[in-house]
């Protein structure tokens, strides 16, 4: 009988400020470990943009001339032009992959473990997001490292530092987008449909591969779509930051979208309002 008294009278472990930090660190640590163990994922995250850089850009170098547009002050190689777009693409893939892996891949069980933590739901989601950003930064800098030997580098080495805050923000936006989408799309059978319906349209209808004035020359409609595409602004934010400059419109759009996507994700996973509660029962998040 005394044993019974013991267990129910055990002191309550309080949710403390230090606990928040432990929780955040733990989530980031796990994501990092998982990333290191999935060598295939790291390799494909690195190879994908390098294929674009080495093959696509090299092939199109002659066809697509890029005139001098800010932030560039001289004529640049096409490889240099698309590098920021590829960096954003890495983050786009990463954001969708780490979040959507919850939908399939039996990762969903891991989501449940995350959500029974006593810490608030929004905090858990933000921690998960932070972990995703950390992983995406590893990937982006690995890409930049390889690109450096291909002579694709910013004017000054400081560019590697000034781009960091931009990458944090764009990683946040794309990660939050993935998180919000993971709660909405239950039917995505595989990553191929995500590529077709999300990644490709976002990537191609943006300034990642061609400057927008070129798009405008061929189609006003496409130009408008590109300008409304948050991915365009992510790319531009990174592009300018690599040259130590701030593109204020891009900054505003990326910040705004980050907040909207995060709120959507928090709403979707909220226990009372959330989509998990509405959409067909426990299977929704088994």
């Amino acid at each position: 009988m005394s044993a019974i008294a013991d267990v129910t009278a055990r002191p309550q472990r309080e949710v403390t400020a230090k606990g928040y930090l432990v929780c955040l660190t733990g989530i980031v640590w796990r994501e990092g470990l998982r990333f290191l163990h999935q060598r295939g994922r790291f390799l494909s995250a690195l190879v994908r943009p390098l294929v674009w850089l080495f093959i696509f850009a090299a092939g199109f170098r002659a066809t697509l001339g890029v005139s001098i547009i800010p932030p560039y002050e001289t004529y640049i190689l096409y490889e240099v032009y698309i590098a920021p777009g590829l960096m954003a693409m890495i983050q786009l893939f990463n954001g969708l992959q780490s979040s959507l892996s919850m939908v399939y891949d039996r990762e969903v069980g891991a989501m449940r473990i995350l959500l029974v933590s006593p810490y608030p739901r929004w905090f858990l989601l933000v921690s998960k997001l932070t972990a995703g950003i950390a992983v995406s930064l590893l990937q982006v800098y690995a890409f930049l490292f390889v690109a450096y030997f291909w002579d694709v580098a910013p004017d000054s080495h400081w560019g590697y530092v000034t781009v960091l805050p931009a990458l944090l923000l764009t990683g946040f936006m794309l990660g939050a987008m993935g998180l919000a989408m993971s709660s909405v799309f239950k039917q995505l059978e595989n990553f191929a449909s995500v590529m077709n319906f999300v990644i490709f349209p976002m990537f191609f209808a943006s300034s990642a591969l061609y400057p927008l004035w070129r798009v405008q020359q061929s189609s006003e409609l496409l130009f408008a779509i590109c300008r409304w595409n948050p991915f365009t602004h992510a790319v531009e934010l990174i592009r300018f930051a690599l040259y130590g400059q701030i593109e204020w419109t891009a900054l505003a759009v990326v910040s705004g979208c980050s907040i909207v996507f995060l709120l959507a994700a928090v709403f979707a996973y909220d226990p009372s309002t959330g989509l998990t509660a509405r959409r067909g029962g426990p299977d929704a998040a088994k």
Binding site: G26, W29, A110
Partner: peptide, 26 residues
């Protein structure tokens, strides 16, 4: 839970430490 919720790639201890972190245990 009914579904398996351990990380297969990680060690037993790593799985447990992750859970402890989720409960704010240093």
């Amino acid at each position: 839970f009914q579904a398996r919720t351990l990380d297969l790639e990680l060690t037993v201890m790593q799985n447990l430490l992750y859970h402890a972190a989720l409960h704010g245990i240093g």
